[in-house]
């Protein structure tokens, strides 16, 4: 009965939404703030990838907020799961798993760093690269669950990377009186060393996201263990 009511309600809502939506400019929305960014983004920020320009320059505050949210989630997970000594119950991986993880680790590391450093040129950036970095550190843990990751080190990297992001922002505040304004030369559009401080910010984001996600996944894995 309850399900039927829900089906009817959701169906009605869906019909209403579809009718409403198809009166909107689908596929040709007004381009107001975006148009200006497309126009001047390359010159003002110097990043070929305009999404990264938006992410780290125009809306850098959002990115800082988002880093904080991930940090808050990781901290809260630590609080919720507590710091009890748990014995990881997962068995050690077999030879194939261990050898595979050993092989994958350097590859993932390089790909992750590449994606982070080329964030201002090609699709990718701090977040995407950070996730790959997290995977690089998490795959060996999957193969050898008992070894785990050093949470102290992770929280250190996490904290310092976040502080570095804000530090670059504050540097701009003191140098140019505007928080997070890109500094340094803009360089040649499309070159690796271009777009001023953007690659540095990207690096900070990547390290922070990588450390946080790796920490999150490891905490969740450890939470499955039996209490000693």
């Amino acid at each position: 009965m309850r399900n039927l009511a829900a089906v009817l309600f959701i169906g009605g809502l869906g019909f209403f939404l579809f009718v409403l939506f198809f009166r909107l400019p689908l596929g040709a929305p007004p381009l107001v703030a975006g148009a200006a960014i497309l126009e001047e983004g390359g010159e003002t920020v110097g990043a070929a990838n305009l999404v990264t320009a938006v992410l780290l320059a125009y809306r850098g505050m959002d990115t800082l907020g988002e880093l904080s949210i991930l940090f808050a989630a990781a901290t809260a997970v630590g609080l919720v799961l507590g710091r009890r000594q748990l014995v990881v119950s997962d068995p050690e991986g077999g030879f194939i798993l261990r050898a595979g993880s050993d092989l994958l680790f350097p590859l993932l590391l390089v790909v992750g760093l590449y994606v982070i450093l080329h964030g201002h040129l090609t699709p990718g950036g701090g977040f995407q690269g950070g996730v790959i970095l997290a995977a690089a550190f998490f795959v060996p843990v999957l193969a050898r669950p008992r070894r785990g990751l050093d949470h102290g080190l992770l929280s250190f990297v996490e904290g310092l990377a976040g502080a570095a992001f804000i530090g670059i922002g504050l540097w701009a505040l003191f140098a140019r009186d505007a928080f997070l304004e890109p500094l340094l030369g803009k360089g040649v559009l499309g070159h690796l060393f271009s777009a001023g401080t953007l690659p540095l910010l990207s690096m900070a984001v990547g390290l922070k996201v990588g450390a946080e996600l790796a920490g999150l996944m490891t905490s969740l894995m450890e939470a499955e263990g039996r209490e000693s």
Binding site: P29, L31, A33, G34, A35, I37, L38, G41, L50, V51, A53, V54, L55, Y58, R59, D62, F127
Partner: peptide, 9 residues
């Protein structure tokens, strides 16, 4: 529009 792409991330 690049803005929604950044927002969605």
């Amino acid at each position: 529009d690049p803005i929604p792409q950044a927002l969605v991330l």
